[in-house]
Structure formats: structure tokens, C-alpha cells
């Protein structure tokens, strides 16, 4: 591909401004930081009053949402959140121009965004994710439900003869297991919330995104309590090691705790 072809491709393309998040006006971005899109634009700052928006140019005739775009969007926000309070935007926010960013986004909502940034200052989000160890949780379910055990034996016996005949039985046991896992998910989520309540300002459960999800909770944490939180999660991971694989993600921008005036009280 020659340089001329690249120019032609960009010549007619409309440009617009992709917005990652909102921060205090005194934020600085390292030059040469690249953003979303192919090719990516340079990340820069648009300021208005005491606020800044983190932005980069994109062309409007190319789609966004490749894995690189998604990771870039989050990495930028989480890295910024380590230094300054950040109001993260959901993926995909594109505004027509810098002037529109300054006027319609920042100036028009200046006080509301300032208040939110003040509440976010000195805090970070963590996400606790747990997934059931498959064999362990299946054994738990079977052991706790004699009817399920009987059903399983039935399937194993009939199954040797005729796979089609067991479809109904397999649907039944599958549903029993799914219901049991759902109940365990709720119980384990509550247990995790209780164990961490003293270390977080607020918490909110996220919906499960996998059949074996055990725990999926967003935590809003005062930075001074981060070490306490990590220790508590390590203890939890150890207690649960045979049945749940636990991960703590973060610190990150407060995706789950923006959009409301005040976060909900911790569990």
C-alpha cells in the first residue's frame, strides 16, 4: 500500500471526536498516546472551565469495536484513574467537534460533573469475579439433591442403550443443576458482600455472564482501604479454593458507580 492510497482513503472521510471520559481540567496526557480506530488518532484533551474531556479523532465511516478498540478505551480510563478522578463513558461516544465537546458536554453539565468528580476523588473501583470449579459444584449439587442423584443414575443406565431416549431426562437434570447453581450464586454473592462490607464504601452486583459465574460484584473503595480489601479477598479465595476460582480486577475507573447522584450504601 502506498502513501497515496492512504491519503485517498482518508480524504473524503468525515472526522469526529471520540470521547473516553471526563476529568479535572489539570489532567495531562503523555504525547504520542494513541486511541481507538484504525489507524488510531492521538489522544488529547478538550477543556472547559474546570473540566476536561479525554478525546481522540476518529473517522465516521470506519466501524469501532475491534478488541483493540475496547481494550484501548478501558486501559486509557483505568490508567488515568490511577492519577485523577475519572468519569468514564460507555464505549462508543462520538461527538461532532471539539467545540461541541466543550459546550454541549462539559459546559452544559459543568456543576453536575464537578460534584461527581469530587465524590470519586480518592476512590477506585474493583470488580470481584468468581467462577465455580465445574466438577466441584456439580458434585455439590448432586450430593445435596437425592432426586438429582437418582436422575443421574437413570441417565447413565438408559444412556448406554439409547441416547435419544435420555434427552428429556438430560433436560430435567440440566434444569435442576441450573436452578441449584443460581441459588448458590445468590448465596455466595451475599456471603462475599458480607465478608467485604467493612472494606468498601459501596457495592453493586453485576448480572452473571457465564453459566458457572459464582460472584460478580463491583466494589467502590476508598484508596486507603485497598490493602485491607486485597487481604480480605485473599482470605476468601483461600476459603473457597476448591469450589470457586476468584479474581479481583482493578483498580479501575468507577464504571458501576457513575450516573447516580450518590452511590448506594455498602452491604
Amino acid at each position: 500500500m502506498s502513501a497515496q492510497m492512504t491519503d485517498k482513503r482518508d480524504q473524503g472521510a468525515a472526522r469526529a471526536v471520540y470521547v473516553y471520559g471526563i476529568m479535572p481540567a489539570d489532567v495531562e496526557i503523555e504525547s504520542g498516546t494513541t486511541g481507538v480506530g484504525d489507524p488510531p488518532g492521538e489522544v488529547r484533551v478538550v477543556r472547559s472551565g474546570e473540566l476536561a474531556a479525554l478525546v481522540s479523532d476518529v473517522s465516521t465511516d470506519r466501524p469501532l469495536g475491534r478488541p483493540e478498540d475496547l481494550v484501548t478505551h478501558e486501559d486509557l480510563l483505568d490508567a488515568s484513574a490511577a492519577d485523577v478522578p475519572v468519569l468514564p463513558l460507555r464505549f462508543g461516544a462520538v461527538i461532532s467537534s471539539d467545540e461541541a465537546v466543550a459546550e454541549e458536554l462539559l459546559a452544559a453539565h459543568h456543576d453536575e460533573f464537578m460534584t461527581a468528580l469530587e465524590q470519586l476523588e480518592g476512590h477506585a473501583e474493583y470488580v470481584l469475579r468468581g467462577r465455580y470449579v465445574q466438577d466441584a459444584i456439580l458434585r455439590e449439587v448432586i450430593s445435596e439433591d437425592p432426586d438429582a442423584r437418582q436422575l443421574l443414575d437413570q441417565i447413565k443406565n438408559v444412556g448406554k442403550a439409547n441416547e435419544m431416549a435420555t434427552r428429556e431426562l438430560r433436560m430435567q437434570i440440566g434444569e435442576i443443576i441450573n436452578n441449584a447453581v443460581t441459588i448458590k450464586r445468590e448465596a455466595d454473592t451475599l456471603a462475599a458482600g458480607d465478608a467485604l462490607a467493612g472494606h468498601v464504601v459501596a457495592s453493586v452486583a453485576r448480572p452473571p455472564t457465564h453459566e458457572l459465574d459464582a460472584v460478580h460484584v463491583a466494589l467502590f473503595v476508598d484508596n486507603s482501604k485497598a490493602a485491607d480489601l486485597e487481604r480480605a479477598v485473599e482470605q476468601m479465595a483461600s476459603d473457597w479454593s476448591d469450589r470457586i476460582d476468584l479474581r479481583l480486577l482493578g483498580p479501575m475507573a468507577a464504571y458501576d458507580f457513575v450516573g447516580t447522584a450518590n452511590p448506594a450504601p455498602g452491604a
Partner: peptide, 25 residues
Amino acid sequence: VIDTILDKGLVIDAYVRVSLVGIEL
């Protein structure tokens, strides 16, 4: 990442109407 930035964060439509640009996602 997908669970976070596609589902969470501020939704731009609540704040910007006139200057929002439709882009293929």
C-alpha cells in the same frame, strides 16, 4: 472489558443530543 465498558459508564445520550454522531459499532 466487554462486561464493563459496553454495559457500564456514563451514557453519552443522556448528556449530548445535537452533536452526537452515529457511528457503526
